[in-house]
């Protein structure tokens, strides 16, 4: 299993789109830094995320989400929150980490 980490807002770059295009079934995705904007409800990327969740597990780094004025109830349903300790667990549970700069 690969852990994909995305730190860019989907409105700024296509990192998230390319990541989801190349992630395979069973992979994990972590949204952090500005990447967390992709996890919030009601954006034009919500459908993309919802579709991706049929094959991949999507996580958001809660400290980064909260820093940007959002709370867990702003999340697209199905996205899980982690803190830095959880981030570490995701890394060690994967076989490799791919950073989508």
């Amino acid at each position: 299993m690969t852990l994909h980490i995305v730190n860019k807002s989907p409105f700024e770059t296509n990192s998230l789109e390319t990541c989801l295009r190349l992630a395979r079934s069973g992979h994990c995705v972590l949204l952090f830094e500005d990447g967390v904007y992709g996890a919030s409800k009601g954006t034009r990327f919500e459908a993309l995320l919802t579709e991706a969740m049929q094959n991949c597990k999507i996580h958001v780094l809660l400290p980064d989400f909260e820093a940007r004025g959002m709370k867990a109830d702003n999340l697209i349903a199905g996205i899980e929150t982690v803190d830095y300790l959880g981030f570490v667990d995701l890394v060690t549970a994967s076989e490799r980490v791919q950073s989508w700069l």
């Binding site: 830095y84 300790l85 981030f87 570490v88 667990d89």
Partner: peptide, 11 residues
């Protein structure tokens, strides 16, 4: 923050 968390977890 990641490095610190990893060390705290004993990695």
């Amino acid at each position: 923050n990641f490095t610190k968390a990893a060390l705290e977890k004993g990695h």
